[in-house]
């Protein structure tokens, strides 16, 4: 198994996620980038679960998928509320506290 290759893949995915969160201002793409970061972590967990033949990594990946589902549920609820009150999906325009 190419564990080093997988780790590098996970790093690249992680960086893509980080860049997406920092550069894009659309809340949906930011949410998806955060999910990408979580997925990069999951990939590492599963790779090490295979490497050490220990189910712990897979269990934690399972829990983290559940966590992601909960996160998306709440996140999308917030987006609907933001859209209703601010009429935007651009994070830069949600700046009521600035004024």
């Amino acid at each position: 198994m190419p564990y080093n290759g997988i780790l590098i893949m996970a790093v690249i995915l992680f960086i893509i996620g980080i860049t997406g969160v920092m550069v894009r201002r659309n809340i949906f793409i930011m949410l998806m980038s955060i999910e990408l970061i979580l997925n990069a972590a999951n990939l590492v967990f599963i790779a090490f679960a295979r490497a050490f033949a220990d189910p712990a990594g897979q269990v934690i990946a399972l829990l983290s998928i559940t966590l992601a589902a909960a996160e998306v549920g709440v996140g999308l609820g917030i987006f609907v509320a933001i859209r209703r009150t601010h009429n935007t999906v651009n994070v830069d325009e949600i700046n009521l506290l600035k004024h």
Binding site: N4, L7, I8, I15, T19, M22, V23, R50, A51, F52
Partner: peptide, 27 residues
């Protein structure tokens, strides 16, 4: 932001590149 991400990428790459994972075959 992009520059920061690139620096982080290089850092992580250095760290991960130094690792050697042998791994055992699971049942």
């Amino acid at each position: 932001a992009v520059i920061v991400a690139a620096i982080l990428f290089i850092e992580l790459l250095f760290y991960v590149g130094g690792l050697y994972v042998k791994g055992i075959a699971p049942p």
